[in-house]
């Protein structure tokens, strides 16, 4: 059945990436998703008691074997360069340090979410989270 109220987001594409969504930073400040800067994430993580920001470098991007709508992105995470692969919709946006929102298919991201977006490429360093006291 068609989605209600004209919403046409594919499943598993969260609503907070739609342009104009209101995001609350750790200090209580409210910003639109498209206005977020690298510093907003860094400062929020500094305030956070349990989350820390890790640098995740894109090592490989390939199409999913199960669906053309998905891509598999392999990251090298943190100082230990742990290898982590995630399967995401091609329009799923990641925040690249010093650059902003990027996805495997920025045209689709802009079309579906109206979120200004650049092309995610191998070598890009994305913001990711881990637990502070993970030992």
């Amino acid at each position: 059945p068609p989605p209600p109220s004209g919403a046409a987001l594919p499943p598993s594409l969260p609503p907070y990436f739609v342009k104009g969504s209101i995001i609350q930073l750790a200090n209580g400040e409210l910003k639109r998703v498209e206005d977020l800067k690298t510093e907003d994430f860094i400062q929020s993580a500094e305030i956070s008691s349990d989350l820390k920001i890790d640098s995740s470098t894109v090592e490989r991007i390939e199409g999913s074997r199960t669906s053309p709508d998905f891509a598999v992105v392999q990251f090298s995470v943190g100082e230990h360069r742990s290898q982590v692969s995630v399967e995401v919709l091609v329009e799923y946006p990641f925040f690249v340090f010093g650059q902003g929102w990027s996805s495997c298919c920025p045209d689709r991201t802009t079309q579906l979410l109206e979120l200004p977006c650049t092309k995610l490429s191998v070598g890009d360093v994305c913001i990711s989270l881990t637990l502070k006291n993970l030992k």
Partner: peptide
């Protein structure tokens, strides 16, 4: 208008501990 926490926008990439 819904307000979303900042950390919901960031993928949680927990590296597997190898040590």
């Amino acid at each position: 208008v819904p307000v979303f926490p900042w950390h919901s926008l960031v993928p949680f990439l927990a590296p597997t501990q190898s040590d």
